[in-house]
C-alpha cells in the first residue's frame, strides 16, 4: 500500500494498462474454446468434401457452398424429423406449463418443501433410469411408433424445470396483492389467475424457454422410443453419422441446423436463461 502511494500517476496508469491487457487476454482465452468450436462447425458446413478432408485444414472456405445444406434436405426426411421435434418440444413444454405453473404456485403458498424435494430428486436421477419401465409400459399399451410416448417421457424433464422455476418466482412475489384480492371477494383461483400469474409472467417466460431447450436437446428418450417415422432431430442426426462415416460437410450442416434454434434462442434470451439456471440450478434429465 505504501509503495503504491509513492508511485507517479504515469507509472500507475501504465500498470493499469498492462493489467487491463492481461485481463482482456484471459477473457479471450476463456471464451475461445466456444468461439473456435462453433466457427469450425460453421466452416465445415460451408465447404465441399475436398476442402473438408484437406491437410493442412482449410479454415475459411475457398468457394463457400450451400450444397451440404441442400443434401441434408434432399437425402433425409429432414423436414419430417424437424416437425417431430417441434411437436414433441412444444407438446411437452405446453403440458408442463399447464400443470407446472399452478403446482409451483401451490407449493410456494403451502411451503410444501417435501414436494419440492421430490421434484429435485427427479432432477438428479439419470434419464436412462426412467426408460426401462416406461418402455415396457408403452409396449404393453401398444403405443410405440407414435409421438405420444416421446411427449410423455419428455415430461420427466419439462415438469421439474417448470415447477422448480415457478416455485422460486412465486415465492418472490409480495403476498399482499393476492391477500387484498381475497379480501375483496376473489376466489383463490381468481387470485392466482388474475393477480399472481400476470405478476409471474417473467418467470413463466424463463420456465418456457428452459423447458423448450432441454426438451429440444434431449436425445435418449426418442432414441429408444422412436420408430423410423417418429425420430426427433437429435436422433436423426445421430443416425446420419452411423451411415455416412466421413461425409463431414452434410453432417456439420445437419448438426448446425439441429442446434441453431437453441443457439439463437440463447443469444436472444440469455438474460432469462441465466436467471432461470441460477434460480434453482435446473438442467434437463
Amino acid at each position: 500500500m505504501i509503495v503504491e502511494a509513492k508511485r507517479s500517476p504515469a507509472q500507475y496508469r501504465l500498470r493499469r494498462l498492462i493489467g487491463n491487457i492481461g485481463f482482456g487476454f484471459s477473457v479471450l482465452v476463456l471464451i475461445s474454446p466456444a468461439i473456435l468450436f462453433f466457427l469450425w462447425m460453421l466452416s465445415l458446413s460451408f465447404k465441399n468434401e475436398l476442402d473438408n478432408t484437406d491437410w493442412p485444414p482449410v479454415f475459411i472456405p475457398q468457394s463457400p457452398t450451400l450444397d451440404n445444406y441442400r443434401e441434408v434436405f434432399a437425402r433425409n426426411d429432414f423436414l419430417r424429423f424437424a416437425w417431430n421435434s417441434i411437436v414433441v418440444s412444444f407438446g411437452a413444454t405446453g403440458i408442463a406449463l399447464l400443470i407446472g405453473v399452478p403446482a409451483g404456485y401451490g407449493i410456494a403458498k403451502m411451503h410444501a418443501m417435501r414436494a419440492a424435494a421430490l421434484i429435485l430428486i427427479a432432477r438428479i436421477t439419470p434419464g436412462l433410469s426412467y426408460l426401462i419401465p416406461l418402455f415396457l409400459l408403452f409396449q404393453w399399451l401398444g403405443m410405440t411408433g407414435t409421438l405420444t410416448p416421446i411427449v410423455i417421457t419428455h415430461l420427466v424433464i419439462t415438469v421439474p424445470i417448470v415447477v422448480w422455476v415457478m416455485i422460486s418466482f412465486f415465492e418472490g412475489l409480495p403476498p399482499e396483492l393476492e391477500e387484498a384480492a381475497l379480501v375483496d371477494g376473489a376466489s383463490i383461483w381468481q387470485a392466482f389467475r388474475y393477480v399472481a400469474m400476470p405478476l409471474a409472467r417473467p418467470g413463466i417466460t424463463v420456465a418456457t424457454i428452459l423447458s423448450f431447450i432441454f426438451s429440444w436437446n434431449n436425445f435418449i428418450f426418442a432414441m429408444v422410443l422412436a420408430g423410423r417415422e417418429t425420430r426427433t432431430l437429435p436422433v436423426a442426426v445421430n443416425n446420419m453419422l452411423t451411415f455416412e462415416q466421413i461425409a463431414w460437410g452434410p453432417l456439420s450442416a445437419a448438426a448446425l441446423l439441429v442446434t441453431a434454434p437453441v443457439l439463437i434462442l440463447t443469444l436472444v434470451a440469455q438474460k432469462q436463461i441465466v436467471a432461470g439456471l441460477t434460480a434453482g440450478g435446473v438442467k434437463g434429465a
Binding site: 468450436f37 432431430l233 437429435p234 448438426a255
Partner: peptide
C-alpha cells in the same frame, strides 16, 4: 445450451 448430440458429432 447447444444440442449435445450435434456438438458431439462435430
Amino acid at each position: 445450451m447447444a444440442t449435445p448430440v450435434a456438438v458431439a458429432l462435430v
